[in-house]
């Protein structure tokens, strides 16, 4: 059932905020506390916020189960493909060949105390993004499934 207009509007306000903050946590995983899981969980919280503030039937029209499942599978495939890419780049599975190699995310990092830059750490941001997408999809789908299970028990 719907919650009140106040809660709904707050949820709407916070939904983009959750997404931005989650993406911030995901992208800055190698610089600040956080990473794929935490950021994914924050993004999933945005979805949970929408789910709690509206009726299940209403929200599943714009937050589809299939899309979220797709997110999950795609995130995991990204992860494993990144791992296999390391294998074809000459290293072992999940070899971080991008680190320090220049280009996207390849900036080398100075040793010791420094704030760090966004475009460093090689494979790590990519894996962070992959895991973020996966966790977003996974946790949202869990919530959606469980809510659908609750709906079934209703007379």
């Amino acid at each position: 059932m719907n919650m009140t207009k106040i809660v709904r509007t707050t949820a709407d306000l916070f939904y983009p905020f959750c997404l931005v903050f989650g993406l911030y946590v995901v992208l800055h995983g190698h610089l600040t506390p956080g990473g794929g899981f935490q950021g994914g969980a924050v993004m999933a919280t945005g979805a949970a916020l929408l789910l709690v503030s509206r009726r299940y039937e209403d929200i599943t029209r714009s937050l589809r189960q299939n899309t979220m499942k797709l997110c999950e599978a795609v995130g995991l495939l990204m992860f494993i493909t990144a791992g296999l890419a390391g294998l074809f780049a000459g290293g072992a599975f999940l070899y971080n060949g991008l680190a320090g190699a220049g280009g996207l995310f390849g900036e080398p990092v100075a040793f010791g105390a420094n704030p760090g830059g966004l475009n460093t750490a090689g494979l790590i941001p990519l894996l962070n993004i992959a895991v973020g997408i996966e966790v977003l999809g996974g946790l949202t789908v869990i919530l959606l499934y469980m809510l659908s299970g609750v709906k079934e028990t209703e007379p």
Binding site: L13, Y15, P16, L19, V20, L23, S62, G117
Partner: peptide, 25 residues
């Protein structure tokens, strides 16, 4: 701000703007 962050910000704004456009306003 650093350049990479601004770039990432633009991309994130585009993605989030698209995803959440039906809700925010």
């Amino acid at each position: 701000w650093s350049g990479a962050d601004l770039l990432a910000g633009v991309m994130i704004a585009a993605v989030v703007g698209w995803v959440a456009r039906g809700f925010f306003c």
